[in-house]
Amino acid sequence: MAKQAVGGGVGASESARSSPGLGSRVSELMLRQREASIFLVAIALAVYFQSSNSAFLSSGNIRSLSEFTYATAIISTGLVMLLICGEIDLSVGQAYGFAPIAMYLADQTLVLPVAIVVGLLATAVIGLINGVATVYLRVPSFIATLGMFFFLGGVNVILTDGFPKTAPSGSFLTEILGGADWSGIAWCLVIVLFMHILLNRTRWGLHTFATGGNPVGASEAGVKTARIKVGNFMLCSALGGFAGLLDALRIGSIDPLAGGPNIMFFAVSAAVIGGTALAGGTGTVIGAFLGTVVLSIMQNGFSLQGVSAYTFNVILGIAILTAMTLNVYVGSLRRSGRG
């Protein structure tokens, strides 16, 4: 027992090869530790930035940290579901921009609550199209959603004539949905908890793992893999749209160029750093959330220090490569453990 827990590094990989099962036990331990280790990284980064600039943990900066975090974190929880299925949505950043625009247009003729629902439904339809293209037309999701990425990016600009619009404000609903301080991160935490339960405690989540882990086997067992995938595309897109709504109502402006590739790649990075395998079959919502927190702390901390965005990108690149290498390493440990 102690041997398994302690034996890291070379010793662990050797014994993994000699005795089947141990390798995957080690990899499981590492995956479970992944969440804990990212948490520790977040703490260490916070301590470091606080020591170099006492403004880091001021209430004002913590609020802006939360504002850096929540939208990306909400998107990354949706992406985790898709990545576990073995799919990806590159257009989710455009759904983030599209939902507020659809809401804005609907708000011209309908009441606000209905307009908000319209915005969310519009993004769910985007997810439905992505899902149908991937599952039924058999276009790889990387390509299908790349097409949707360009299409929706253009639609967002056309629908607004390229000019930012003023977002509805001043009502109870707009305050709850992003307007009030801390409302964004509150929604984020509720969604993270909900998605964590959905993934780990419901049939939908179990079937999501099954769909990504062994698509043929899952469908032979009667799992409706097509429905699972399409549903997760819709969920991911709608979560992207919801994140966009929260941001638009917080900022008070609907920007046709909001979101896009930046927030999508951050969300993918967060999921990957959080231990989700791009090949499907494994992943955690909590890991993706913590991954976003780490990215936000780095981005915010470095900008407080006056480090340029380019330096931040270099560090982000190294972080992703390290995380991916670790994923591959863990994956090969598991395979050797299968023996």
Partner: peptide, 11 residues
């Protein structure tokens, strides 16, 4: 019980 067993290794 299918030949490929229809089991999910990760579960």
């Amino acid at each position: 019980v299918f030949q490929d067993l229809a089991l999910i290794s990760e579960l």
